[in-house]
Design a binder for these strands. Structure first.
Length: 816
DNA sequence: CACGCTCTGCCTGCG
DNA sequence: GCAGAGCGTG
């Protein structure tokens, strides 16, 4: 009897939770309610991944392990259980009033850690958490951020334990490159034989795997190539140490080292974090995997969300094995798959499933939808990249007109940034508004880097790379010779460049340059003393004035105008930064700003509001969705790229995942484009259709041929081979079609140079119902007119020749 | 030391 | 096809 009551109580409780979370599907709900132990949520594209993540965090904070716990109050009565059973008929808000009685071991917000990859994702999680809680501060207490920001928060407290001073600097990829090149020069290593880019990638991947310079040297052994890189790695590490700086990889690496080497610190964080959640787990590398296990090592409540099929960042160190081997790495892990897709049509999902199904190394998911079949995927062949670009613009214009779509409904996603140029040109000629994402980032512009380098040097005089960057910018007549002398003295005295310059008059070797060098350090000292007395933007103005940087740009005149504007833009970023942070109470220091600046990428991110077609790489489109997606350049040699065709099977699988990501960005319509021939890196190539397109089920596709050949054939089909010599009796007798003929599979085209403005004009004047005359077919009546590319498909019922479909520009119809 | 010419090499890119 | 790097000259 007692046992029965308990069972009824638990069932009633779970039914109530199920009803309140009824807006989620079964799998999503299970993920939300599973709070204890390692949990892997395999979330397919568009399956509500972020929703689950956010709702689960909110659930744990509010109710703890309320759903799955078998805990029952000891004073359970028949009456109470009956009440609970009846409560199922109440409304959701009413039930929510009851739920607090089931709270079991809830988690205080500050013991919750949520890690994402991008600032954008972190921002989205934060804002969605705020809407989950009425109390904003509750959401604010949650530790949520990127891997790097979370690690920085830890390193800011304990950085000294791994040998970094308080104000350590973060080196970005450009600083790293300069440093590595400098080391290579010093070690006399030929840049031709060892391209710095490859060296940097190798070092970065070593760091991703938690390999130190010593580890790397051991692994390299006697291998000539690797041991040279090991030497560079070692020199680079020493340089970073001397500059009191870390690169991005180091931020993770040193945090792991800190936790591994300091049991007290590890134990503090393990006790602190009761729940750890990692987003985009398929993108994690070895270091991040180790970090996740360390931080969650106290409670073992590690939840990871990801999609092995969307792992597209192997090239920057991600190991798909983290997600594939999660259950092996964490015993008793729960696996939940989210396969219901709320984004795309059935056709799009069938296509995506068809493609990804060709991969072997995957957990195996199959997306499905309760939604509609939708439009077929258009597979369009164009003559060249010009035709490809134009047809995209034409289709956008047509769909905007006929389907009432907004421009922001369209995205053009390509494999490489270089593909954007042609499409941009076509868009520029039209009136279609567009934006291009990617390319040079704001923070990568030279003037921005220079300006920030001044600030960084002011904060950290030891910063060698930043000093070298701006020492002669503007020109101060401090050339390579002088700097080499300074560097030599610094080496000998085992001190920093700045220190030597500061005491330049003490070194005979510096001779006449001493005064110039001292003038420079004096300026930096002067600015350093101003640092804490002025508000940040005013201080920045002062730096730009005293350094002469602003004057240099002004003197540069018209060509430097944009740079000057960018400097002002940076200042307004600062004003914004000061404005937002002071609201939260702290007065932001220069150090705070620089850290934020190093960690937070550009502000000029994708703005969903502006009504414009958006162009970007498939990589940057991950996580986004659009009603209509164009995929130009679907050709073997472009996508998959040549280097992936030559590479191993793993590379091809990654490339295929990228194709999967591309297709699943679309909600309603995909247009795949390829060309007969195109100019690719200055060479004319005729690529075969992408192998990935061949993996899409044929019934998902509808083909269009806009090549010259295709158009010629279409013209033959619609207007007859040699119309003038064909007897009219050859054609069937007049007959109205019983049902409108579908034009789907008809090959249609855009106007060729032959299409004169005159032809277009006369075509535009035509309407269904008009009587027309054709050179060959004689008189007839227009049944319908459909836009096709830039042209029109006109269906005419001729009195003698029967019903024909004609391309407007070829048909030369005359209105009667 | 600054400018201009030629040569090369080229995918994707968060923090 | 184009941009950035490197080299040579005024």
């Amino acid at each position: 009897m007692e046992k029965n009551l308990t069972a009824r109580y638990l069932a009633a409780k779970r039914a109530l939770f199920d009803k309140v979370y009824g807006d989620l599907n079964d799998m999503q709900r299970q993920a939300v309610f599973t709070t204890e132990g390692p949990l892997l949520v395999l979330a397919g594209a568009g399956s509500g991944k972020t929703t689950v993540l956010v709702r689960r965090i909110a659930f744990i904070i509010r109710y703890g392990n309320a759903y799955f716990t078998d805990f029952t109050p000891h004073n359970l009565t028949e009456e109470h259980v009956a009440d609970l059973e009846h409560a199922i008929h109440l409304s959701v808000p009413e039930i929510e009033q009851i739920l607090p009685e089931f709270i079991h071991d809830p988690c205080p917000p500050y013991r919750m850690l949520a890690i994402t990859f991008t600032n954008k994702a972190a921002g989205e999680i934060k804002s969605r958490l705020v809407t989950q809680f009425a109390d904003e501060t509750l959401a604010g207490d949650i530790w949520s951020g990127t891997f790097h920001s979370v690690c920085m928060r830890i390193l800011r407290t304990y950085g000294d334990r791994v040998g970094f001073g308080k104000g350590f600097t973060i080196y970005d990829t450009d600083d790293t490159k300069k440093a590595v090149v400098a080391i290579m020069k010093k070690l006399n290593i030929d840049e031709k034989q060892f391209p710095p880019k490859a060296v940097i990638t190798t070092i970065s991947h070593a760091k991703d795997k938690l390999m130190t310079a010593e580890d790397f040297a051991v692994e390299a052994g006697v291998d000539f190539r690797l041991s040279r890189i090991a030497a560079i790695y070692k020199g680079y590490e020493e340089l970073l140490r001397a500059s009191n700086a870390m690169d991005f990889d180091d931020i993770i690496l040193h945090t792991v080292r800190l936790l591994r080497e300091n049991p007290d610190v590890l134990s503090y964080y393990q006790r602190k974090f009761k729940y750890v959640c990692i987003d985009e787990y398929q993108d994690t590398n070895v270091a991040q995997f180790v970090l996740s296990s360390l931080l969650s090592g106290g409670s073992h409540n590690l939840m990871v969300v990801g999609d092995d099929d969307q792992s597209i960042y192997k090239f920057r160190g991600a190991t798909i094995e983290n997600i594939l081997g999660f259950d092996k790495a964490f015993k008793n892990a729960t696996l939940i798959k989210l396969e219901q897709n709320y984004r795309s049509t059935k056709t799009i999902l069938d296509a995506a499933n068809g493609v990804i199904g060709h991969n072997l190394g995957r957990k195996g998911k199959s997306l499905w939808t309760a939604g509609e079949v939708g439009e077929k995927i258009i597979l369009r062949k164009c003559e060249d990249q010009m035709g490809e670009s134009r047809s995209i613009v034409d289709t956008i214009r047509r769909m905007a007109e006929t389907q009432g779509r907004k421009y922001k409904d369209f995205a053009v996603l390509y494999r490489t940034n270089s593909q954007s140029a042609g499409i941009e040109r076509a868009l520029q000629r039209s009136t279609v508004p567009y934006r291009v994402l990617g390319g040079t980032r704001f923070s990568d512009r030279k003037e921005i880097r220079d300006a920030v380098a001044y600030l960084q040097l002011i904060c950290n005089h030891a910063d060698r790379e930043r000093l070298l960057r701006i020492i002669n910018e503007p020109r101060r007549k401090i050339g390579d010779k002088t700097l080499a002398a300074v560097a030599a003295i610094a080496e000998e005295q085992n001190t920093t460049l700045f220190e030597v310059m500061d005491r330049a008059d003490e070194f005979v070797a510096l001779g006449r340059s001493a005064a110039t060098l001292k003038a420079f350090t004096a300026m930096i000292h002067r600015l350093t003393s101003l640092m804490d007395t002025l508000p940040l933007p005013d201080f920045f103005d002062e730096v730009m004035e005293q350094s002469g940087y602003r004057q240099m740009l002004i003197d540069g005149g018209e060509p430097e105008k944009e740079r000057l504007e960018n400097i002002d833009e940076l200042k307004s970023n600062m004003m914004e930064y000061v404005g937002t942070t002071t609201e939260m109470g702290d007065i932001p220091s220069l150090v705070d700003f620089l850290e934020e600046y190093a960690l937070v990428a550009d502000v000029d991110k994708y703005d969903t509001e502006a009504d414009a077609v958006v162009l970007m790489t498939i990589h940057s489109a991950k996580g986004l969705e659009f009603p209509v997606v164009f995929l130009p350049g679907m050709e073997d040699g472009i996508f998959p790229g040549m280097q992936n065709i030559m590479g191993g099977a793993d590379d091809m699988e990654e490339e295929r995942r990228l194709a999967y990501v591309a297709i699943t960005r679309a909600r309603e319509q995909v247009v795949i484009l390829h060309t007969r021939s195109r100019i690719w890196y200055g060479q004319t190539v005729a690529n075969p259709l992408s192998r990935f397109v061949g993996e899409i089920p044929e019934e998902c596709l509808v083909r269009e041929d806009l090549t010259m050949e295709g158009l010629a054939k279409a013209a033959v089909v619609t207007t007859g081979v040699k119309p003038a010599t064909q007897p009219t009796s050859y054609y069937e007798r007049p007959r109205r079609p019983k049902t409108p003929v579908h034009t789907d599979r008809l090959t249609v085209g855009q106007p060729t140079p032959a299409a004169t403005a005159e032809a277009r004009q006369s075509m535009n004047a035509l309407n269904p119902g008009d009587r027309v005359i054709h050179a060959t077919f004689g008189e007839g009546e227009i049944l319908s007119i459909k836009p096709m590319g830039a042209d029109k498909l006109i269906e005419v019922m001729f009195d003698i020749a029967g019903t024909k479909k004609l391309m407007g520009t070829y048909a030369k119809l005359k209105k009667l």
